[in-house]
Design a protein around this nucleic acid. Structure first.
Lengths: 218, 218
DNA sequence: TAACCCATGTAAACGGTTACATGATTCG
DNA sequence: CGAATCATGTAACCGTTTACATGGGTTA
Protein backbone atom coordinates (compact mmCIF):
# COMPACT_ATOMS: atom_id res chain seq x y z
CA UNK A 1 0.00 0.00 0.00
CA UNK A 2 1.16 3.49 -0.72
CA UNK A 3 2.19 6.00 1.88
CA UNK A 4 1.24 9.61 1.58
CA UNK A 5 4.16 11.97 1.80
CA UNK A 6 2.79 13.89 4.76
CA UNK A 7 2.50 10.78 6.85
CA UNK A 8 6.16 11.12 7.49
CA UNK A 9 5.77 14.64 8.84
CA UNK A 10 4.07 16.01 11.89
CA UNK A 11 0.47 15.09 11.08
CA UNK A 12 -0.40 14.92 14.72
CA UNK A 13 -4.15 15.19 14.63
CA UNK A 14 -4.04 11.78 13.02
CA UNK A 15 -2.27 10.34 16.01
CA UNK A 16 -4.52 12.10 18.48
CA UNK A 17 -7.45 10.50 16.68
CA UNK A 18 -5.77 7.10 16.71
CA UNK A 19 -5.26 7.35 20.46
CA UNK A 20 -8.81 8.44 21.09
CA UNK A 21 -10.26 5.74 18.84
CA UNK A 22 -8.01 3.10 20.37
CA UNK A 23 -9.65 3.91 23.68
CA UNK A 24 -13.13 3.73 22.21
CA UNK A 25 -14.55 3.64 18.68
CA UNK A 26 -16.57 6.70 17.76
CA UNK A 27 -18.17 8.92 15.14
CA UNK A 28 -16.73 12.22 14.01
CA UNK A 29 -19.29 13.92 16.15
CA UNK A 30 -18.29 11.95 19.24
CA UNK A 31 -14.67 12.82 18.64
CA UNK A 32 -15.49 16.48 18.30
CA UNK A 33 -17.02 16.41 21.76
CA UNK A 34 -14.08 14.48 23.18
CA UNK A 35 -11.78 17.12 21.77
CA UNK A 36 -13.89 19.76 23.43
CA UNK A 37 -13.30 18.14 26.77
CA UNK A 38 -10.40 16.32 28.31
CA UNK A 39 -8.22 15.80 25.28
CA UNK A 40 -9.02 19.29 24.08
CA UNK A 41 -6.79 21.04 26.54
CA UNK A 42 -3.76 19.46 24.92
CA UNK A 43 -5.00 19.24 21.40
CA UNK A 44 -7.84 21.27 19.98
CA UNK A 45 -9.60 20.46 16.71
CA UNK A 46 -12.75 21.53 14.96
CA UNK A 47 -15.27 19.09 13.53
CA UNK A 48 -14.46 20.07 9.95
CA UNK A 49 -10.87 19.12 10.44
CA UNK A 50 -11.74 15.93 12.24
CA UNK A 51 -14.13 14.76 9.52
CA UNK A 52 -11.58 15.42 6.84
CA UNK A 53 -8.77 13.60 8.59
CA UNK A 54 -11.04 10.68 9.50
CA UNK A 55 -11.95 10.30 5.84
CA UNK A 56 -8.33 10.27 4.80
CA UNK A 57 -7.36 7.81 7.50
CA UNK A 58 -10.12 5.45 6.42
CA UNK A 59 -8.88 5.72 2.82
CA UNK A 60 -5.39 4.89 4.01
CA UNK A 61 -6.65 1.84 5.85
CA UNK A 62 -5.83 3.06 9.34
CA UNK A 63 -9.49 3.09 10.27
CA UNK A 64 -12.52 0.96 9.45
CA UNK A 65 -15.92 2.53 9.09
CA UNK A 66 -19.20 0.96 10.11
CA UNK A 67 -22.30 2.78 8.94
CA UNK A 68 -25.32 2.81 11.19
CA UNK A 69 -28.32 4.13 9.28
CA UNK A 70 -30.07 6.97 11.07
CA UNK A 71 -33.72 7.72 10.49
CA UNK A 72 -34.14 11.30 9.46
CA UNK A 73 -30.75 12.35 10.67
CA UNK A 74 -27.59 11.49 8.69
CA UNK A 75 -26.13 8.00 9.04
CA UNK A 76 -23.72 7.50 11.88
CA UNK A 77 -20.27 6.67 10.56
CA UNK A 78 -18.55 4.79 13.37
CA UNK A 79 -14.77 4.61 13.08
CA UNK A 80 -12.55 1.96 14.65
CA UNK A 81 -8.81 1.44 14.51
CA UNK A 82 -7.63 -1.34 12.18
CA UNK A 83 -4.59 -3.56 12.61
CA UNK A 84 -2.73 -1.24 10.29
CA UNK A 85 -3.81 1.67 12.48
CA UNK A 86 -2.47 -0.09 15.56
CA UNK A 87 0.81 -0.69 13.80
CA UNK A 88 1.03 2.98 13.01
CA UNK A 89 0.28 3.81 16.64
CA UNK A 90 3.09 1.52 17.73
CA UNK A 91 5.48 3.00 15.20
CA UNK A 92 4.60 6.50 16.35
CA UNK A 93 5.24 5.81 20.02
CA UNK A 94 8.67 4.58 19.05
CA UNK A 95 9.85 7.75 17.40
CA UNK A 96 11.10 10.71 19.40
CA UNK A 97 8.63 13.53 19.85
CA UNK A 98 10.02 16.81 18.56
CA UNK A 99 9.95 19.58 21.14
CA UNK A 100 7.14 21.85 20.13
CA UNK A 101 8.43 25.39 19.96
CA UNK A 102 6.24 27.49 22.16
CA UNK A 103 4.71 30.41 20.38
CA UNK A 104 3.35 33.03 22.65
CA UNK A 105 1.72 36.20 21.43
CA UNK A 106 1.52 37.17 25.08
CA UNK A 107 5.30 37.04 25.48
CA UNK A 108 5.71 39.14 22.34
CA UNK A 109 3.31 41.69 23.75
CA UNK A 110 5.15 41.86 27.06
CA UNK A 111 8.35 42.40 25.18
CA UNK A 112 6.78 45.21 23.19
CA UNK A 113 4.87 46.87 26.01
CA UNK A 114 7.27 49.80 26.06
CA UNK A 115 5.99 50.82 22.62
CA UNK A 116 2.33 50.63 23.59
CA UNK A 117 -0.05 51.18 26.45
CA UNK A 118 1.72 49.77 29.48
CA UNK A 119 -1.26 50.05 31.79
CA UNK A 120 -3.37 48.09 29.33
CA UNK A 121 -0.75 45.35 29.17
CA UNK A 122 -0.61 45.14 32.95
CA UNK A 123 -4.40 44.85 33.00
CA UNK A 124 -4.06 42.06 30.46
CA UNK A 125 -1.59 40.26 32.69
CA UNK A 126 -4.07 40.51 35.53
CA UNK A 127 -6.85 39.17 33.33
CA UNK A 128 -4.78 36.21 32.25
CA UNK A 129 -3.73 35.52 35.78
CA UNK A 130 -7.40 35.02 36.62
CA UNK A 131 -7.86 32.72 33.62
CA UNK A 132 -4.96 30.55 34.65
CA UNK A 133 -6.17 30.43 38.24
CA UNK A 134 -9.57 29.26 37.05
CA UNK A 135 -8.14 26.61 34.75
CA UNK A 136 -5.84 25.42 37.49
CA UNK A 137 -8.71 25.12 39.96
CA UNK A 138 -10.64 23.11 37.38
CA UNK A 139 -7.75 20.73 36.78
CA UNK A 140 -7.08 20.39 40.45
CA UNK A 141 -10.69 19.58 41.19
CA UNK A 142 -10.58 17.00 38.44
CA UNK A 143 -7.50 15.45 39.91
CA UNK A 144 -8.89 15.39 43.42
CA UNK A 145 -12.07 13.75 42.18
CA UNK A 146 -10.65 11.10 39.87
CA UNK A 147 -7.18 10.45 41.21
CA UNK A 148 -7.29 11.11 44.95
CA UNK A 149 -4.48 8.68 45.68
CA UNK A 150 -1.38 8.56 43.50
CA UNK A 151 -0.26 5.29 45.02
CA UNK A 152 -3.52 3.59 44.08
CA UNK A 153 -3.42 4.39 40.36
CA UNK A 154 -4.00 1.53 37.95
CA UNK A 155 -1.92 1.02 34.84
CA UNK A 156 -4.73 2.46 32.75
CA UNK A 157 -5.13 5.53 34.93
CA UNK A 158 -1.48 6.38 35.22
CA UNK A 159 -1.03 8.00 31.78
CA UNK A 160 -4.25 9.98 32.17
CA UNK A 161 -3.05 11.19 35.53
CA UNK A 162 0.35 12.09 34.08
CA UNK A 163 -1.23 14.22 31.38
CA UNK A 164 -3.45 15.96 33.90
CA UNK A 165 -0.42 16.71 36.03
CA UNK A 166 1.15 18.24 32.93
CA UNK A 167 -1.78 20.59 32.69
CA UNK A 168 -1.58 21.45 36.35
CA UNK A 169 2.13 22.17 36.24
CA UNK A 170 1.69 24.28 33.13
CA UNK A 171 -1.04 26.38 34.67
CA UNK A 172 0.88 26.76 37.91
CA UNK A 173 3.86 27.96 35.97
CA UNK A 174 1.88 30.48 33.92
CA UNK A 175 0.16 31.71 37.05
CA UNK A 176 3.48 32.15 38.81
CA UNK A 177 4.78 34.06 35.78
CA UNK A 178 1.84 36.45 35.87
CA UNK A 179 2.31 37.01 39.60
CA UNK A 180 5.96 37.69 39.11
CA UNK A 181 5.26 40.20 36.36
CA UNK A 182 2.58 41.99 38.35
CA UNK A 183 5.12 42.32 41.09
CA UNK A 184 7.81 43.43 38.66
CA UNK A 185 5.67 46.07 36.99
CA UNK A 186 4.51 47.42 40.33
CA UNK A 187 0.87 46.54 40.03
CA UNK A 188 0.59 43.95 42.74
CA UNK A 189 -1.10 46.45 45.08
CA UNK A 190 -4.26 46.39 42.97
CA UNK A 191 -6.46 43.68 44.45
CA UNK A 192 -7.00 40.65 42.29
CA UNK A 193 -10.24 39.96 44.09
CA UNK A 194 -11.50 36.81 42.49
CA UNK A 195 -9.25 33.88 43.23
CA UNK A 196 -7.98 32.30 46.40
CA UNK A 197 -4.34 31.33 46.96
CA UNK A 198 -2.45 30.41 43.86
CA UNK A 199 -1.03 27.15 44.79
CA UNK A 200 -3.66 24.52 45.21
CA UNK A 201 -1.87 21.35 45.95
CA UNK A 202 -2.61 17.71 46.11
CA UNK A 203 -4.48 16.59 49.22
CA UNK A 204 -6.72 19.68 49.24
CA UNK A 205 -10.27 18.49 48.87
CA UNK A 206 -12.15 21.79 48.69
CA UNK A 207 -11.75 22.99 45.09
CA UNK A 208 -14.22 25.59 43.80
CA UNK A 209 -15.34 23.91 40.54
CA UNK A 210 -17.43 27.01 39.69
CA UNK A 211 -18.01 28.32 36.18
CA UNK A 212 -17.14 25.29 34.14
CA UNK A 213 -19.17 23.96 31.32
CA UNK A 214 -17.26 20.85 30.56
CA UNK A 215 -16.39 18.36 33.21
CA UNK A 216 -14.84 14.98 33.39
CA UNK A 217 -11.86 13.40 31.91
CA UNK A 218 -12.52 10.14 30.25
CA UNK B 1 -7.21 53.46 3.77
CA UNK B 2 -8.57 49.97 3.47
CA UNK B 3 -8.11 47.30 6.08
CA UNK B 4 -7.48 43.75 5.09
CA UNK B 5 -9.83 41.29 6.65
CA UNK B 6 -7.12 39.34 8.40
CA UNK B 7 -5.83 42.40 10.21
CA UNK B 8 -8.67 41.92 12.61
CA UNK B 9 -7.66 38.36 13.37
CA UNK B 10 -4.66 36.85 15.06
CA UNK B 11 -1.96 37.74 12.55
CA UNK B 12 0.70 37.69 15.19
CA UNK B 13 3.85 37.54 13.17
CA UNK B 14 2.95 41.03 12.05
CA UNK B 15 3.01 42.26 15.62
CA UNK B 16 6.18 40.43 16.44
CA UNK B 17 7.78 42.20 13.49
CA UNK B 18 6.38 45.55 14.59
CA UNK B 19 7.89 45.07 18.03
CA UNK B 20 11.23 44.04 16.66
CA UNK B 21 11.33 46.91 14.17
CA UNK B 22 10.21 49.40 16.81
CA UNK B 23 13.32 48.45 18.73
CA UNK B 24 15.53 48.81 15.67
CA UNK B 25 14.91 49.15 11.93
CA UNK B 26 16.14 46.21 9.91
CA UNK B 27 16.14 44.18 6.71
CA UNK B 28 14.31 40.91 6.30
CA UNK B 29 17.60 39.17 6.66
CA UNK B 30 18.38 40.93 9.93
CA UNK B 31 14.97 39.98 11.26
CA UNK B 32 15.47 36.37 10.32
CA UNK B 33 18.57 36.29 12.49
CA UNK B 34 16.80 38.06 15.33
CA UNK B 35 14.10 35.44 15.17
CA UNK B 36 16.75 32.77 15.31
CA UNK B 37 18.00 34.22 18.55
CA UNK B 38 16.33 35.81 21.53
CA UNK B 39 12.89 36.46 20.12
CA UNK B 40 12.92 33.08 18.45
CA UNK B 41 12.26 31.09 21.55
CA UNK B 42 8.85 32.68 21.85
CA UNK B 43 8.11 33.16 18.21
CA UNK B 44 9.77 31.28 15.42
CA UNK B 45 9.60 32.32 11.78
CA UNK B 46 11.38 31.45 8.57
CA UNK B 47 12.79 34.03 6.22
CA UNK B 48 10.26 33.24 3.52
CA UNK B 49 7.44 34.04 5.85
CA UNK B 50 9.13 37.16 7.13
CA UNK B 51 9.75 38.52 3.64
CA UNK B 52 6.17 37.91 2.66
CA UNK B 53 4.69 39.58 5.72
CA UNK B 54 7.12 42.51 5.48
CA UNK B 55 6.00 43.11 1.92
CA UNK B 56 2.38 43.10 2.91
CA UNK B 57 2.95 45.39 5.88
CA UNK B 58 4.74 47.89 3.65
CA UNK B 59 1.82 47.74 1.21
CA UNK B 60 -0.54 48.43 4.08
CA UNK B 61 1.49 51.42 5.20
CA UNK B 62 2.61 49.99 8.52
CA UNK B 63 6.22 50.02 7.43
CA UNK B 64 8.38 52.28 5.29
CA UNK B 65 11.09 50.82 3.09
CA UNK B 66 14.42 52.44 2.37
CA UNK B 67 16.44 50.79 -0.36
CA UNK B 68 20.19 50.73 -0.03
CA UNK B 69 21.74 49.61 -3.31
CA UNK B 70 24.12 46.73 -2.90
CA UNK B 71 26.94 46.17 -5.33
CA UNK B 72 26.77 42.66 -6.65
CA UNK B 73 24.48 41.38 -3.92
CA UNK B 74 20.77 42.28 -3.89
CA UNK B 75 19.73 45.69 -2.60
CA UNK B 76 19.17 45.97 1.11
CA UNK B 77 15.54 46.75 1.85
CA UNK B 78 15.56 48.42 5.26
CA UNK B 79 12.18 48.50 6.98
CA UNK B 80 11.11 51.01 9.63
CA UNK B 81 7.84 51.42 11.50
CA UNK B 82 5.63 54.31 10.28
CA UNK B 83 3.26 56.39 12.38
CA UNK B 84 0.45 54.13 11.23
CA UNK B 85 2.50 51.17 12.35
CA UNK B 86 2.99 52.70 15.77
CA UNK B 87 -0.74 53.31 16.01
CA UNK B 88 -1.35 49.69 15.22
CA UNK B 89 1.17 48.69 17.86
CA UNK B 90 -0.63 50.83 20.41
CA UNK B 91 -4.01 49.44 19.42
CA UNK B 92 -2.68 45.91 19.70
CA UNK B 93 -1.32 46.37 23.21
CA UNK B 94 -4.75 47.60 24.25
CA UNK B 95 -6.64 44.52 23.25
CA UNK B 96 -6.71 41.41 25.43
CA UNK B 97 -4.40 38.63 24.35
CA UNK B 98 -6.28 35.39 23.76
CA UNK B 99 -4.93 32.47 25.75
CA UNK B 100 -3.04 30.35 23.30
CA UNK B 101 -4.26 26.81 23.58
CA UNK B 102 -1.29 24.63 24.16
CA UNK B 103 -0.96 21.86 21.65
CA UNK B 104 1.31 19.11 22.75
CA UNK B 105 1.97 16.04 20.68
CA UNK B 106 4.01 14.85 23.61
CA UNK B 107 0.98 14.92 25.92
CA UNK B 108 -1.04 13.02 23.34
CA UNK B 109 1.67 10.41 23.15
CA UNK B 110 1.82 10.02 26.91
CA UNK B 111 -1.90 9.56 26.94
CA UNK B 112 -1.67 6.89 24.24
CA UNK B 113 1.40 5.09 25.57
CA UNK B 114 -0.70 2.15 26.68
CA UNK B 115 -1.41 1.35 23.02
CA UNK B 116 2.22 1.53 21.99
CA UNK B 117 5.73 0.82 23.15
CA UNK B 118 5.82 2.01 26.75
CA UNK B 119 9.55 1.64 27.14
CA UNK B 120 10.13 3.76 24.08
CA UNK B 121 7.87 6.48 25.45
CA UNK B 122 9.71 6.45 28.76
CA UNK B 123 12.97 6.80 26.85
CA UNK B 124 11.44 9.72 25.02
CA UNK B 125 10.52 11.36 28.32
CA UNK B 126 14.09 10.96 29.45
CA UNK B 127 15.35 12.48 26.22
CA UNK B 128 13.07 15.46 26.54
CA UNK B 129 14.02 15.93 30.14
CA UNK B 130 17.59 16.44 29.01
CA UNK B 131 16.50 18.93 26.35
CA UNK B 132 14.58 20.99 28.86
CA UNK B 133 17.47 20.90 31.30
CA UNK B 134 19.78 22.19 28.60
CA UNK B 135 17.43 24.98 27.55
CA UNK B 136 16.89 25.94 31.15
CA UNK B 137 20.61 26.14 31.81
CA UNK B 138 20.99 28.34 28.74
CA UNK B 139 18.24 30.70 29.88
CA UNK B 140 19.56 30.79 33.38
CA UNK B 141 23.06 31.64 32.19
CA UNK B 142 21.57 34.37 30.05
CA UNK B 143 19.73 35.80 33.02
CA UNK B 144 22.75 35.65 35.29
CA UNK B 145 24.84 37.42 32.68
CA UNK B 146 22.46 40.17 31.59
CA UNK B 147 20.23 40.70 34.58
CA UNK B 148 22.24 39.81 37.66
CA UNK B 149 20.25 42.15 39.90
CA UNK B 150 16.47 42.37 39.65
CA UNK B 151 16.35 45.53 41.72
CA UNK B 152 18.68 47.32 39.34
CA UNK B 153 16.65 46.75 36.16
CA UNK B 154 15.96 49.78 33.99
CA UNK B 155 12.57 50.41 32.44
CA UNK B 156 13.85 49.16 29.11
CA UNK B 157 15.30 45.99 30.56
CA UNK B 158 12.30 45.03 32.67
CA UNK B 159 10.13 43.62 29.85
CA UNK B 160 13.04 41.68 28.41
CA UNK B 161 13.75 40.25 31.81
CA UNK B 162 10.08 39.37 32.28
CA UNK B 163 10.01 37.43 29.03
CA UNK B 164 13.17 35.59 29.91
CA UNK B 165 11.66 34.65 33.26
CA UNK B 166 8.70 33.30 31.34
CA UNK B 167 11.03 31.02 29.45
CA UNK B 168 12.74 29.92 32.63
CA UNK B 169 9.48 29.14 34.41
CA UNK B 170 8.23 27.24 31.38
CA UNK B 171 11.32 25.09 31.17
CA UNK B 172 11.35 24.47 34.91
CA UNK B 173 7.78 23.34 34.70
CA UNK B 174 8.37 20.98 31.77
CA UNK B 175 11.43 19.60 33.46
CA UNK B 176 9.50 18.99 36.67
CA UNK B 177 6.80 17.26 34.65
CA UNK B 178 9.30 14.91 33.07
CA UNK B 179 10.82 14.12 36.45
CA UNK B 180 7.43 13.40 37.88
CA UNK B 181 6.56 11.08 35.02
CA UNK B 182 9.84 9.22 35.21
CA UNK B 183 9.07 8.68 38.85
CA UNK B 184 5.49 7.68 38.10
CA UNK B 185 6.41 5.18 35.42
CA UNK B 186 9.08 3.66 37.58
CA UNK B 187 12.06 4.61 35.50
CA UNK B 188 13.77 7.00 37.87
CA UNK B 189 16.33 4.39 38.84
CA UNK B 190 17.99 4.69 35.46
CA UNK B 191 20.67 7.32 35.89
CA UNK B 192 20.01 10.59 34.06
CA UNK B 193 23.64 11.45 34.36
CA UNK B 194 23.92 14.86 32.79
CA UNK B 195 22.20 17.54 34.82
CA UNK B 196 22.21 18.62 38.45
CA UNK B 197 19.06 19.16 40.52
CA UNK B 198 16.00 20.30 38.67
CA UNK B 199 15.25 23.57 40.23
CA UNK B 200 17.60 26.38 39.46
CA UNK B 201 16.26 29.39 41.23
CA UNK B 202 16.80 33.07 41.38
CA UNK B 203 18.87 34.84 44.02
CA UNK B 204 17.28 32.64 46.63
CA UNK B 205 19.98 30.64 48.27
CA UNK B 206 17.45 28.81 50.34
CA UNK B 207 16.73 25.11 50.32
CA UNK B 208 16.31 23.49 46.89
CA UNK B 209 12.80 22.17 47.54
CA UNK B 210 13.22 19.80 44.62
CA UNK B 211 10.93 19.42 41.65
CA UNK B 212 8.52 22.24 42.34
CA UNK B 213 7.79 24.96 39.91
CA UNK B 214 5.57 27.62 41.29
CA UNK B 215 5.65 29.22 44.66
CA UNK B 216 3.92 32.36 45.69
CA UNK B 217 0.45 33.29 46.51
CA UNK B 218 -1.32 36.51 45.66
C1' DT C 1 -41.67 28.49 19.22
C1' DA C 2 -37.22 29.14 19.94
C1' DA C 3 -33.04 27.18 21.14
C1' DC C 4 -30.12 23.47 21.37
C1' DC C 5 -28.53 18.67 20.18
C1' DC C 6 -27.36 15.21 16.73
C1' DA C 7 -24.63 14.38 12.55
C1' DT C 8 -22.68 15.33 8.52
C1' DG C 9 -20.44 17.94 5.22
C1' DT C 10 -18.49 21.92 1.31
C1' DA C 11 -15.72 26.05 0.16
C1' DA C 12 -12.57 29.55 0.77
C1' DA C 13 -8.97 31.87 2.88
C1' DC C 14 -5.08 32.19 5.62
C1' DG C 15 -0.71 30.97 8.16
C1' DG C 16 3.28 28.26 8.09
C1' DT C 17 6.76 24.93 6.22
C1' DT C 18 9.73 23.04 2.77
C1' DA C 19 12.11 22.98 -1.42
C1' DC C 20 14.35 25.45 -4.85
C1' DA C 21 16.91 29.41 -6.91
C1' DT C 22 20.45 33.25 -7.51
C1' DG C 23 24.93 35.39 -7.04
C1' DA C 24 28.58 38.08 -5.02
C1' DT C 25 31.87 38.30 -0.86
C1' DT C 26 34.62 36.65 2.90
C1' DC C 27 37.12 33.32 5.61
C1' DG C 28 39.74 29.14 6.73
C1' DC D 1 38.90 25.70 -3.20
C1' DG D 2 35.02 25.01 -0.60
C1' DA D 3 32.06 26.65 2.88
C1' DA D 4 29.68 30.09 5.10
C1' DT D 5 27.60 34.73 4.99
C1' DC D 6 24.82 38.31 2.90
C1' DA D 7 20.36 39.16 0.80
C1' DT D 8 16.48 38.37 -1.65
C1' DG D 9 12.89 35.92 -3.46
C1' DT D 10 9.18 32.08 -6.04
C1' DA D 11 6.23 27.97 -5.87
C1' DA D 12 3.89 24.34 -3.92
C1' DC D 13 1.88 22.11 -0.29
C1' DC D 14 -0.29 21.32 4.01
C1' DG D 15 -2.80 22.19 8.31
C1' DT D 16 -6.04 25.13 10.40
C1' DT D 17 -9.82 28.38 10.82
C1' DT D 18 -14.08 30.45 9.55
C1' DA D 19 -18.26 30.72 7.23
C1' DC D 20 -21.99 28.46 5.30
C1' DA D 21 -25.37 24.58 4.69
C1' DT D 22 -28.86 20.84 5.88
C1' DG D 23 -32.56 18.86 8.63
C1' DG D 24 -34.93 16.17 12.01
C1' DG D 25 -35.45 15.51 17.20
C1' DT D 26 -35.66 17.19 21.99
C1' DT D 27 -36.41 20.41 25.59
C1' DA D 28 -37.67 24.69 28.06
Amino acid sequence: MHLRAYETKCMSLQHALLVSLAEQEATGYDLTRRFDRSLGFFWRATHQQIYRVLGRMAEDGLLAVRIEPGEGRPDRRVYAVTDLGREELLRWTREPTPSEQLRSEFAVKIRGMGFGDEDAVVADIRRRRAEHAEQLAYFEANRAKHYPDVEALTDEERPLYAVLRGGILTEQSLLAWCDEMLDLFGASDVPVADTPPTDIRHETTEAPEASRTSRRTA
